[in-house]
Design a binder for these strands. Structure first.
Lengths: 204, 204
DNA sequence: ATTAATAAGTGCAACCGTTTAACTTTTTGC
DNA sequence: GCAAAAAGTTAAACGGTTGCACTTATTAAT
């Protein structure tokens, strides 16, 4: 999903053109994907729809899947903040559960039909799901370090890393019949109790 | 890895030839991969080394990565058995931890140098790691059902599914400095305590 | 035994995502 | 102004994968 409202620096003629090309590519890609399905749209189609060559496309995006997703620098910051600035008396996995449940993309609530279709596209396209998962999982190390710092454990503490890993994984728990919220709750059932009971006692 | 010792049914001339071709392909692939590295060996190289055409290769294996891995029907059975036939008084996550630690492929212990090189190949090749992960994770549903059945929970119980998912994931916890065993232990630290403390009390 | 149906294997050309290399344009620093 | 660096563009290729038309070998039915 592309969000063009995040510009601030006074960018020169060149960078403006670059951004425009990038945007044209992302727009064309999303439109075509929604129209014909991810697998039925080729890189060459997208490039032509944006009136550039395929080589130019790959200068802007590292691969076909990346055409659909935006930067995620802010995502990691928010994730860490959820741990660091959690309300008084709330446990770390508790704060993480709240964050995951709050930021999970639900299909029905936001009135934006366009966004709903975007979510469906990702969920129904294995390639895109996999790509999103890899992107999301890259935050594991940062999250693990934040958790460890928060409780004064060594940066590589295995339990902290496991909590980080499992927390991030909750977003991709497969759910056939039960709805997503229930499955996530079930997962944190394990994690919260496990964290509280784990050796080391004085965990926040 | 290929293991030719699992034949039992009296197979006809045709299926014998088929198996031979398949074996030739797998052997050639592994040999070439170890020799030159996964990325430096093309499908066409492997096909030629096995003296078949690329079309034939894809009749036997669904993709390049599959040339390296064997069937995994037995793996799932063993996994389920670890839960079902666990010793008296041992908890389910306890049995799973024991199974995971026992069957994890350690580089140094088995005296087979060939096998060691095979493991290194997989671990150093992102494509192969990903493929192995996907194969392994396919057992999630079966494991979740076995766990649920074992404690008399509904087949789709979210906590059981979460335990299954997280258990399988332990094999792919990234570890930069700490060794694998320590990280797995840290993960089960969470899971075992969480499972014991989770609502439902009478869990075995 | 002949024959029809099935399945393995072949060769080739194509498709698709991605990369390379050569070339042109724009920007930047002197 | 001007040369060097950076970014943009293009056509061609590469590597995994698939489709198609065809040959050959095995099995099963008549």
């Amino acid at each position: 999903m592309t969000d063009a409202t995040t510009e601030r620096a006074p960018l020169g003629r060149r960078e403006r053109k670059k951004a425009a090309t990038r945007q044209a590519l992302a727009d064309a890609a999303l439109r075509l994907f929604l129209e014909h399905g991810y697998d039925h749209v080729g890189i060459r189609d997208i490039a032509e729809a944006a009136d550039v060559s395929t080589t130019t496309l790959f200068k802007h995006f590292p691969g076909k899947e990346a055409l659909v997703f935006d930067e995620d620098a802010e995502l990691e910051a928010a994730l860490i903040a959820a741990v660091r600035e959690r309300p008084e008396g709330r446990s770390i996995p508790g704060a993480l559960r709240e964050y995951v449940l709050r930021t999970r993309r639900a299909k029905g609530d936001d009135a934006d039909a366009r966004f709903t279709r975007f979510i469906e596209l990702v969920e129904n396209t294995p390639d895109l799901r996999e790509y999103e998962r890899r992107m999301w999982m890259r935050h594991e190390t940062a999250l693990a370090r934040a958790i460890a710092e928060e409780i004064g454990a060594p940066a590589e503490d295995p339990t902290c890393r496991a909590l980080a890993h499992f927390t991030l994984e909750t977003r991709f728990l497969t759910c056939e019949k039960a709805d997503v919220g229930t499955v996530i709750a079930g997962a944190f059932e394990l994690l919260e109790h496990g964290w509280n009971a784990a050796a080391g006692g004085a965990r926040g």
